[in-house]
Simulated scan of single mutants.
Amino acid sequence: MNKPSVYRVAFIGCGKRAHEHAIGVQADSRCQVVALSDISGQSAETLNAEFGFQAAIYADHKEMLAREKPDVVLICLWTPLHLPVFRDCAEAGVKAVLCEKPMSATWGECREMGRIADESGCQLTFSLQRRFAKGNQTARRLIKEGKIGQLLRMDLYSPPNLLDCGIHTLDQAMSFMDETPAKSVLGAVDTTETYNWFNVPSECGASGGIVFDNGVHASLYSGSIDTWEPSEDMTKVWAGVRATGTEGFIEVMWDGQIVRGVNYADPSWKPEMELSSMSDQMKGYVRHAIDCLETGEEPEVSNRKALRASEIIFAFYESVRQNARVELPLTGVTDSPFITMLERGQFAKEGARG
């Protein structure tokens, strides 16, 4: 089948994240933005003007899909809208959807997005763009080459909350292990305060342990929102992964900043700090998604990989609900155990922060 050299691209949701996605779209000559959809006409007009798209503007995304028939759609909406809008895109025959993370607010909805993608053939990816940071790519290569020996354990750090931020850290860790899935999860959450990010309630902190199929043990800590900003001391891994092996360790922050690398047999070895901007990451994300649309290869940020990271998060919540370790794959769960427990008043203290 002949592939078009230019793809008709549309945005559904034109807020802040859409502007970051737009940087990647604008940089790829194969992308022609033909339509923008947002209930706020002003938001769509601002995006149109800033990037010079000259796209048609719609308030109703279904009307936009029917009239414009885009090949590629970027969904930049709040979390609860991901599933219904993706379903609309798949039913409209969209070839590829680049969706904002996290996948959805419940485990059942996450799995439904995967099912729709598989059955419709619509390529579904999520904006776990940090996989395209140079430092993360270097860290993956160094670990694969055995620079720190056989991987034994990981320490994972994330700002709150698990669903919205933790997915980046978990995805980063799994990418360092060639996508090895988790085997079991034991988790705890802090509800001293509860947050509401993008219309999804969440905890203010979490900690626990994960065992992966390859035998690697990981500890995870999601910290207080008041202490999650990076300090001038770049030796502090506030959001990222410390991977420890038989012959050394490497510490990598979210955006690929390699804070420190140690090889026990070669004290002089120091991996270079490779900085990568969000713009560079978004360009890599969009370019790769379009490449995979043409080649048929599984994208680096496919829905299958996002599902594995999401499964760990919902298993954390289910572990809290059961007061026990949870074995994976996660079965018998379709809700968000955290939201269910919160709504039932099962936590000792429930504050709120918007």
Rank of each mutant, 00 (worst) to 15 (best):
G209A: 10
G209I: 07
G209V: 09
I210A: 02
I210S: 03
I210D: 01
I210T: 01
V211F: 02
V211W: 02
V211A: 09
F212P: 00
F212M: 01
D213Y: 01
N214S: 07
N214Q: 03
N214G: 03
G215C: 02
G215S: 05
G215H: 06
G215D: 06
V216Y: 04
H217P: 00
H217R: 14
H217N: 10
A218N: 04
A218G: 03
A218V: 05
L220A: 04
L220H: 04
L220N: 01
L220T: 04
Y221I: 14
Y221Q: 09
Y221S: 12
Y221G: 05
S222G: 09
S222C: 15
S222P: 02
G223L: 03
G223S: 05
G223W: 03
G223N: 09
G223V: 06
S224Y: 11
S224E: 12
S224N: 15
S224A: 13
I225P: 02
I225W: 08
I225C: 01
I225G: 15
I225Q: 06
I225E: 07
D226R: 08
D226A: 11
T227A: 08
T227K: 07
T227I: 08
W228C: 15
W228V: 08
E229K: 14
E229L: 14
E229V: 04
P230R: 13
P230V: 08
P230I: 09
P230T: 11
S231Q: 11
S231R: 12
S231G: 15
S231W: 03
S231P: 00
S231E: 10
E232W: 06
D233I: 02
D233G: 02
D233K: 02
D233R: 07
M234Q: 07
M234Y: 08
M234G: 00
T235W: 03
T235I: 01
T235C: 01
T235V: 00
K236W: 03
V237C: 15
V237W: 01
W238L: 10
W238K: 14
A239C: 13
A239W: 14
A239K: 10
A239D: 09
A239P: 00
A239M: 12
G240Y: 05
G240S: 05
V241Q: 05
V241Y: 02
R242F: 00
R242K: 15
A243R: 07
A243N: 06
T244A: 13
G245A: 11
G245P: 08
T246R: 10
T246C: 05
E247I: 01
G248R: 05
G248Y: 06
G248E: 09
G248T: 08
F249S: 11
F249A: 06
F249H: 14
F249K: 07
I250E: 00
I250M: 09
E251K: 14
E251G: 00
V252M: 10
V252D: 05
M253N: 13
D255C: 04
D255I: 00
D255Q: 12
